[in-house]
Design a protein around this nucleic acid. Structure first.
Lengths: 199, 199
DNA sequence: GTCTATAGGCAGATAGAC
DNA sequence: GTCTATCTGCCTATAGAC
């Protein structure tokens, strides 16, 4: 497989390796918490070489959000294609977040939401679209769950979608300083349990 | 009232005015997103004067978290002293967060949780204590609500406390890029509704 | 307590050789 | 595509006069 697309492939194209390192730095230290020097040192190249691939830090940031959002879209499509039940979809959605927590990272867009006021405008628009897309997908899954009577029918689906998105982003945020996955999983489990129809 | 303790008093002691400006900058731009120059310009004093009151940025950061956590503790005690029902306590707890959202800010410790990996060690410890204290208070309120049968009895109180803390921190985080209080309130309302005992 | 002046370092970014 | 060298500007922090 000459053109491996594995995330941390050592012999991937330089642009990809830059994105991989920058993504980890962004998800652990924030946009204002890492520099071109950090990436350059880790990859063993110079800052000037980085600027050849991504002219400005704003360009690099936009590329990072774009790739992250695309991967997320693909993951959601995979869930839609394979998970039959609404509850199954929501459980797999939670697993997407849990994997990020296990990697000792934050959601890339959650991190950037915190720093929102300091970001270049193109990145700001990308972040809003990411959350809108997540909310829409969650609301659709919740609507489905109501039609099949898997989920409780109380309240607007949009409100429940926002609640679920909030739990996952927030529990991830709070678990981060403790580096404790259980802080995330227990919150996520409680939120899902509250959605399930009670006989 | 010569010694007013109002947050933005124009004639408050200089140290207090510094903390007020720095707090707003921290809650909107993050620890790595503001500088002594920003504070100095806004107050019309020099950076050197700032260093007289807070020798290092780490000192300023610690003082900010300390004050924020103290004010939060006072607010929780006020709720305990005046709110009779468990649901009333939780609703007033939600209002604490809602006020922050209306001020177009993030929770100070939520912001710092995102930047956790870049912070000086003393601040890191303060942040963990803040979340532990919140979780403990919420779990106690939820336990009370079960004894009085106000709240649903399913799941561990700690899990529900983490869920609620997560919703509030996360919904605040997601609402921030949209500057839309409803994104917060609808999520918070849905979370509370899921806790209430259903007859 | 506030100022001027400045140190020393790191940030993002560019020019131009190879 | 990568390098060396450099620029400009901002950062935190300090020395010392008033």
């Amino acid at each position: 497989m000459p053109k491996s697309s594995s995330p941390a492939a050592a012999r991937a194209p330089t642009a990809t390796r830059i994105l991989d390192v920058a993504e980890r730095l962004l998800q652990t230290r924030g946009y204002n918490g890492f520099s071109y020097a950090d990436i350059a040192e880790e990859l063993g190249i110079t800052k000037a070489s980085l600027h050849h691939h991504f002219a400005t830090k704003a360009d690099l940031g936009s590329a990072l959000v774009r790739r992250y959002a695309e991967q997320f879209t693909v993951a959601l499509q995979a869930i839609d294609a394979s998970a039959p039940s609404a509850l199954g979809k929501l459980e797999r959605y939670v697993q997407l977040y849990e994997q990020v927590v296990r990697g000792e990272r934050l959601c890339l867009c959650g991190m950037l939401a915190a720093e929102y006021g300091t970001l270049p405008r193109p990145m700001q628009e990308q972040i809003r679209k990411f959350f809108d897309a997540n909310e829409t997908w969650l609301a659709a899954a919740i609507e489905q769950g109501r039609r099949t009577a898997e989920l409780r029918g109380r309240g607007a689906a949009t409100d429940l979608a926002r609640m679920l998105l909030g739990v996952l982003e927030g529990a991830m945020l709070v678990a981060h300083p403790f580096n404790d996955v259980r802080r995330f999983t227990s919150a996520a489990r409680a939120a899902l349990a509250g959605l399930v129809a009670t006989p």
